[in-house]
């Protein structure tokens, strides 16, 4: 019974949502919207449990004096300050906006900017020409990189007497043909995988998300 109820609910709602995708009638769209609204109601309750989890995790870290436990105080301070200002005064209060724009946004931007360096180190590993495939990847990457910058065409046109703007043309060919076709192949596979997975879940054959077993 403990398994049958969620499986039955999954079957009913899964089927209804799938059929609603093909039915523009106000009744079917109304049912669809209602189900989505119900799922949204779950979110605030889940958020309470998530915040409790966060507080618990950092409280344990402080109590056990785990490595860098002092930073857990920062989590509490940040959370309390945002809640104290955000709940009574709203998210448009200047103090709330100031903290968002001057604390969270720069920190997010810092993490994002790390990508530039991380891409360089990952590219170095990926492009080491140790195999035929890696050499092919290196050659394609070089062409795309040179074709991406205007100076690539400029140098080519100055030094080589034939093939005007060849780097950018070659770059576009690589992106439009081998790259795009392989991406579409992957997307087709993903789409079939999604449908197959959905059928397994709707029919109750895939039960791993319930913890597995019968």
């Amino acid at each position: 019974m403990r398994r049958q109820v969620p499986l039955a609910l999954c079957f009913i709602f899964g089927l209804v949502m799938m059929l609603a995708e093909f039915s523009p009638h106000p009744v079917s769209q109304g049912i669809r919207k209602e189900i989505i609204d119900w799922s949204l109601i779950i979110w605030p309750f889940a958020l309470v449990l998530a915040v409790a989890s966060l507080v618990h995790t950092h409280w344990i870290r402080i109590r056990r004096r785990a490595e860098y436990w002092q930073y857990s105080y920062l989590v509490f301070i940040g959370m309390i300050v945002m809640v104290v200002i955000g709940i009574p005064f709203g998210k448009r209060h200047p103090a709330f906006v100031w903290m968002f724009e001057n604390v969270q946004v720069p920190m997010d931007a810092t993490m994002f900017s790390l990508l530039a360096f991380i891409i360089a180190s990952a590219a170095y590993r990926a492009f080491r020409a140790r195999t035929f495939e890696a050499s092919l990847l290196l050659a394609a990457a070089l062409i795309v990189m040179i074709g991406n910058v205007p100076v690539g065409d400029f140098i080519w046109n100055k030094l080589i007497p034939f093939g005007d703007d060849l780097p950018s043309t070659a770059r576009q060919w690589i992106l439009d043909n081998p790259n795009l076709s392989s991406r579409r192949g992957i997307i087709l596979g993903i789409s079939l995988g999604v449908i197959s997975q959905s059928i397994r879940i709707i029919l109750g054959i895939e039960r791993s998300y319930l913890g597995g077993g019968d």
């Binding site: 449990l49 998530a50 915040v51 989890s53 966060l54 618990h56 995790t57 969270q104 920190m107 997010d108 993490m111 994002f112």
Partner: peptide, 11 residues
């Protein structure tokens, strides 16, 4: 456990 909903804070 829950970490954060923010993309880069999570990272």
């Amino acid at each position: 456990f829950f970490l954060t909903e923010s993309q880069f804070a999570y990272a």
